[in-house]
Write a protein that binds this DNA or RNA. Structure first.
Lengths: 325, 325
DNA sequence: GTAAAGTATGAAATGCTTTTCACGTCAAGT
DNA sequence: ACTTGACGTGAAAAGCATTTCATACTTTAC
């Protein structure tokens, strides 16, 4: 494969001039520019990007830390990121981590060694303090709430959205309320849990641990929850469900077992995924695609102007009332 | 940031020796190995991968050409790819193309200039002849049927699976059958269309163009199809639907409009996505995750041994009979 | 008419690691 | 005792494009 030196020789100019032509620098005469372009075209020359990366220390690639590509929650965020990346012509190095800390560390390290220019973290298991230490090597954007003067973030107020959902259920007279979450110990989960118990205690209702389900991700997990509930002496009359897909699984299994929704079991879920419309689920739209888009644009801004300030954006959520409450 | 030269100086050895230690080459004395490792550790040194890429011409990254990350069909394939990549410790440069040819060309070019070591193509709009020309630069794997001695492929027999679905419907006495596809002109679509008309003509039934729907991707598109059918004088009694999600949209809208499934409208769909179980949809399992996994492993094999032969694997599909036929 | 600013160009340094080649030592084999 | 082969090590080349610096020629400005 030809290199820039070959081009220079054939076009009768120096490598510096070839580089200028390649990078659209001014200060190249029309004659030489044309000569270089002719040779480039004739030899079907392509720049060796690896060399460019080496010398510039930039790769035009950003890393994406994402636990699961196939969960609707993350898939929606990823969709937003991909849309913006396509637009901005930035490549995405996607790492499905399954929440493995070493995979996260690996991407962080790629930032350090400048294999990627920036990092988007959809969710993580490493502590923020650990991650923050890497922000000296390039911009990092989080898709969850974080107090940091070094990492930008986009988030929705999970506490507020859970409170809103609770308010809706309490207003309808429900007091026997449970919930289904994914991870029990993430920052978001703790917030949601807090919103849940705050709402209950302000209504003077005690929290019932047996109605709180964790590690609930899939349709099948949702069905499992219903089977669990059916076996209980005292059943909850309403459920907050993190994720429309899980909610769909719950509703489907509930109906199969003769429970009426919402009369016997009311459901509020989150994300407003297309499936929620299909099942006519009352849900809180978490604007996930928008979160992805915003995260990417925040990253792009910091990439283009490293001096630009760290930002924390909160996106508004909204309640979509349908038929499950 | 320290470089290999610094390490060499501090450890009192040559850069070559440092490189050997870093790459686990034999022929380094224990004393020097230890000295180098001590300095590496003390300086928290990391290799500059961009330099490694430049000199080795390898990047340990493979490109993934994928039209839409958020369609279940592609999402499932991607899931399989991501699983294997995680395992093999290979990075994925994912490009959501929206079927834009220039995005595909871009990845192909990245292969040429060795920014990626190989390429996985989930679906494409470029002609295979064009793509084939790039196979000289690195292994390319296709997730669809292709006759080529340069590009490996994994596929399921879409003709066969469509025939099987048709057979099922014909056996049940249906003759007024329509279908819903995504793209109308892709290779897979043409095959499916051929299976469809072959099946009809062998049953002596004419093809009805007005029952053939294209560009049907989403739940909402499915609902649209149903509204179209409701307006028809003569309605189909059965539908083949490429994609469980679309089928779910169809069923949901059909039921809303008083059509009974399967009595008034029978449905066979494809992919066996979790949503199919939820809606009790009769579907043909296309083993998409498996396709992704196989595609990746085929790529890995060719990466590790460039001399290994081009392979074409066909994965078996299977019918999952549920309640919509 | 002369200083200052703008335009144009190439040589050489830079970024960093891997690999080849050449050379030296030591142990095993004959 | 002498050849082989294995082991260890470092100098230097290779991989390729960008950028700085120095230089020289043109314009513009006053």
């Amino acid at each position: 494969m030809a290199n820039i030196k070959d081009i220079a020789r054939l076009a009768g100019v120096s490598v510096a001039t070839v580089s200028r032509v390649l990078n659209d620098h001014p200060y190249v005469s029309e004659a030489k520019r044309a000569a270089v372009q002719e040779v480039v075209h004739r030899l079907n020359y392509s720049r060796n990007v690896n060399a460019v990366h080496l010398i510039t220390g930039k790769t035009n690639m950003v890393g994406v830390v994402i636990p699961y590509l196939n969960l609707p929650y993350f898939n929606s965020i990823m969709e937003g990121i991909a849309q913006e990346a396509l637009e901005a012509n930035v490549h995405l190095l996607v790492s499905q981590t399954n929440y493995a800390a070493d995979k996260e560390t690996e991407l962080l390290n790629m930032l350090k060694i400048k294999q990627i220019d920036g990092l988007l973290i959809c969710s993580r298991s490493l502590e923020w303090e650990v991650i923050e230490a890497y922000s000296q090597f390039g911009p990092i954007i989080a898709c969850e709430y974080i107090e940091s003067d070094r990492i930008s973030s986009v988030h929705i107020d999970h506490y507020g959205s859970f409170r809103l959902a609770m308010q809706l259920l309490l207003e309808k007279g429900h007091t026997r309320i449970g919930y289904c979450l994914g991870r029990g110990h993430s920052f978001n989960s703790r917030n949601r849990r807090r919103a849940f118990s705050d709402a209950l205690s302000s209504a003077g209702v005690p929290v019932r641990e047996e109605w709180m389900f964790y590690q609930i991700y899939s349709i099948e997990d949702g069905a499992e929850v219903v089977r669990g509930i059916l076996d209980m002496e005292e059943r909850p009359t309403a459920l907050l469900v993190a994720g429309d897909q899980v909610a769909a699984g719950i509703i489907s299994e509930a109906v199969k077992n003769g429970l009426r929704v919402p009369e016997d079991l009311a459901i509020v879920s989150f994300d407003n995924h297309p499936i929620a419309q299909l099942f006519d689920i009352t849900t809180i739209d978490n604007r996930l695609v928008e979160i992805g888009r915003t995260a990417f644009s925040l990253l792009l801004k910091r990439l283009q102007d490293p001096a630009s300030p760290v930002e924390h954006r909160e996106l508004p959520f909204r309640l979509i009332e349908r038929a499950t409450v």
